[in-house]
Nucleic acid binder design. Structure first.
Lengths: 148, 148
DNA sequence: TATGGTAATGATAATCATTATCATTAACAG
DNA sequence: CTGTTAATGATAATGATTATCATTACCATA
């Protein structure tokens, strides 16, 4: 929990209390490269922290997304998944999603070309649809190395 | 229901029976440019077709997606939404999603540039991650003309 | 154009993910 | 240390979707 001190102070800016559930969830997600669901987080934390409530997981996840500590991801069917936004991982990235086993791979190549396309598209969208772009999302679906 | 004859025959290839619920759902979705949820479809059809069951809506939607008549879309929170795949709309398109009112706008500009980026990305992904790309999805989030 | 085999339907219950409620607990400012 | 009040955890409630199963109705065939 080396990061806890930094988290705590960053958190205070949002006028919230620093609690054990909050630290545990952030700690767990910061240590894995996996994209975990609320249930998976609950099951994992329950080992070291028996008695933690599911409600708390959901509430905390939602708070941590709002305050920019986590990303919430929506992968087709199944529950929402969450990933830690580290300063390095915060660098723009997208996902490769295996349609067979559901594995999610982070992908951050071709960002320059993507940036160019997105910029151009945004200009176009704003002009044609009068739509103010705030964010975008790109996903590739297919078969991972273990599934084909 | 001018299209019904064509639908019916296309459907038969999948060894399925052509029924009133199936025709009604396809008819409704082919006549609107909206992206409807199962509940919205149920509410609408119930007027002209009282007694239709919710189960049937879900089952039929899933079947129509499998057989390529419809696209299933996943827009953040809230229920899944469905759109008709007409031969013209089947042309590759993506969505602009308003983060305030939830409106979804179909968007099909810059397809050439996108195609180029995607092709290049696929090559890269295959080489680096040994991931066989089957499909992709691009979404822009922001504020529509009514919301800003 | 009847009819029987069977796929499809609709009512209902069940499941899964998530949110709401509320009494109890614990952060932390003073 | 202590009081306030935000956060927690147990529970119920909601919303979307899937499963079950007896009944209905497509449609191939005779």
């Amino acid at each position: 929990m080396v990061e806890a001190y930094k988290w705590r102070h960053r958190f205070r800016k949002h006028v919230s209390r620093w609690t054990l559930p909050r630290e545990s969830i952030l700690d767990l997600l910061s240590r894995t490269s996996k994209h975990l669901s609320a249930k998976e987080i609950y099951d994992d934390l329950s080992k070291a922290y028996p008695g933690i409530g599911q409600s708390t997981i959901y509430r905390t996840l939602s708070l941590l997304v709002q305050t920019g500590f986590l990303n919430k991801m929506d992968i087709g069917d199944g529950p929402k998944r969450y990933e830690y936004r580290s300063s390095s991982k915060m660098e723009h990235h997208h996902h490769l999603i295996c349609t067979k086993c559901g594995k999610i791979i982070d992908y951050s190549d071709f960002i320059d070309e993507e940036e160019k396309l997105v910029k151009e598209a945004e200009k176009n969208i704003t002009g044609k649809y009068n739509f103010k772009v705030q964010d975008h999302n790109i996903e590739f679906y297919g078969l991972c190395k273990d599934c084909h």
